[in-house]
Design a protein around this nucleic acid. Structure first.
Lengths: 333, 333
DNA sequence: ACTATCAATCGAACCGGTTCGACGAGGAAG
DNA sequence: CTTCCTCGTCGAACCGGTTCGATTGATAGT
């Protein structure tokens, strides 16, 4: 490994001069700078990250804490991770991805050992056990998913309440008076996935305002239970439209509908809530609220970077609930 | 931040004593050790990763280099990443996940700055541009995906040639004499995804031995092209069985078959090659070769860890092609 | 009683960067 | 011709760990 010392010797200057030439924090004569640059090129020097981190207390690494639940539909997660990774790199940061089951412990370990400059939490629950730890550590953080207490963090999420209302509005406008609502599994609620009941409550409330009758089910997440459940619900013939807030259910829906010869939107109107990528992956022909995981991920990174650069030490508290946008794929009438 | 110095002061010993108490590399009296442990607990000390890395030239971080191609079916990738992350943690390592488009440059940057102790490459192509860099850097590496020249690396992959043969055998045994073969897109071949033509060549050759007639197509990867292509192929009525080596096609297959009223296996036998998770995700009822991404990922980590612990400096060259296993889901007759 | 051995600890050097203060040379101002 | 800056550079200290002698006191061996 070539060190800054090697470069210095080769260019006939001191270590500090090389350092200043690199950082530009002091003026260096054109002549020496060129000599140093030549030496660097010739020797192939790259600063040692550990040494630099030690000296500057900066690692240029962001910790990304992801928690995969077995009862959750996994492919969705990657839609957040990739844009985050890309955005981070654009800002000059690398990503340390942590998937440990014991999130709080992992967070504490990584933070205390100073491996990262900042932290992004994905899939944050209403009372997320990682949040108390977040409050103790000294690195800034931002998150995707709206917790109960957002104090001190930058939080990004889809506005699930508005999403619920928008979808109900969409159906109400088209004259539907009796509908089916399929939400995430009970486990998600118990675990505190707030997006589940935020969406659901808002939808139910708005439906009540319209006087729309709602048949509400917790959707399954594993086959073959999913198909069976959908089949039963369809056979019961409850209402003229369906709102699906459940990845596994919506992904399985086309097959079940087809099997039963139910045409969309002629026999049944269907709306959902999923990302464009997700829709493309499963070839879903349903009008839906776009969940914009890429946008959320990127904004989380932006906010974090801003915090990391900010020296004022002011605790941030930006809560950004992005407005739902309906993508009309013609599955309602 | 509490440093080792703070701990030492608090326990009334020198820094080195604390260090030895922690590492156990020298004998420390029970009494002082307990005093030190108490101090650590009280002050909440965690060693600074940068400082430790500087002193020991060890980061306890593994670089995971993933390349996402837009023409590849993305959810598959996560199946590798998660097991790798888990296995790494079990061995005491964290994961720096790098998704940069310019893989070689990123690899060089991360390696030269000494941010990682070792490197895992995913989705390695036949002539992968990252390999020349891998040969220059001083960290050990292992990979998933079989390149042309494996010298100096530990390589893990499914035995795609045997997989191709096994599937053809499976159909031949059942008396099929004319079959359809759907492989990855042309781009995958051009890019050097060797698994594509390794599978295909072996399958074609084996089929020729049996005197089986094969109609071979490059499958599409984006909707709606996928469905249309499948439809056309089915309408042409070529053969009594189908071998699908294409994630997008196999995922879309149930819907298209159903639409056309083609029953499996009564009207058509279908076999594929995908992981159990993938099959569950898309609810695929097809007999298939299991691709075992979790096993491959874990073995890559194991091999890498072994290399990192090995001080002998011997260049490894383990090439492990895991034997394909057919999971019979009853889609052939 | 005298030396060899060993357990327990300390001080100093080192890893590879960054940064602060100092210093000499040259130019401008008085 | 001083005096004072500014520019360009250097040396030393520092970041927070690890590790290599060296030292001390106690124990064992003869």
């Amino acid at each position: 490994m070539t060190t800054i010392q090697d470069v210095a010797r080769h260019a006939g200057v001191s270590r500090s001069t090389v350092s200043y030439a690199l950082s530009g924090k002091r003026t260096i004569s054109r002549e020496t700078r060129e000599r140093i640059e030549a030496a660097i090129r010739e020797l192939g020097f790259t600063p040692n990250a550990g040494a630099r981190a030690l000296a500057t207390s900066q690692t240029l690494v962001i910790g990304l804490f992801v928690h995969f639940f077995q009862d959750e539909f996994s492919p969705a997660m990657l839609q957040y991770v990739l844009p985050i990774s890309d955005a981070a790199r654009e800002a000059g940061y690398d990503i340390l991805m942590v998937t440990e089951t014991d999130g709080p412990k992992a967070l504490e370990r990584i933070s205390n050992s100073n491996m990262v400059d900042g932290v992004i939490l994905l899939n944050v629950a209403h009372e997320d056990p990682r949040l108390p730890v977040m409050r103790k550590i000294h690195q800034p953080g931002s998150m995707v998913g709206l917790p109960k207490n957002t104090e001190g963090f930058d939080v990004f999420d889809l506005d699930f309440e508005e999403s619920g209302r928008v979808l109900v509005d969409h159906l109400a406008e088209r004259g539907h008076r009796e509908i089916v609502l399929i939400t995430p599994r009970k486990d998600v609620y118990d675990r505190g996935g707030a997006y589940a009941w935020r969406f659901q409550n808002a939808a139910l409330q708005r439906a009540a305002q319209y006087g729309i009758r709602v048949h509400w089910f917790h959707g399954e997440t594993q086959q073959p239970a999913v198909n069976q459940q959908i089949g039963e619900i369809l056979d019961a013939g409850l209402g003229t439209a369906m709102i699906v807030h459940n990845d596994a259910v919506i992904a399985a829906l086309p097959a079940v509908l087809h099997e039963r010869g139910i045409r969309v939107p002629d026999d049944l109107s269907v709306v959902g809530i999923f990302s464009e990528d997700f829709g493309r992956l499963f070839n879903l022909p349903y009008t839906a609220v776009e969940t914009s995981p890429d946008k959320l991920g990127r904004r989380a990174v932006q906010a974090l970077v801003q915090q990391m650069l900010d020296e004022s030490g002011s605790t941030p508290n930006r809560v950004e609930l992005i407005a739902p946008q309906i993508v009309d794929r013609g599955s309602t009438k």
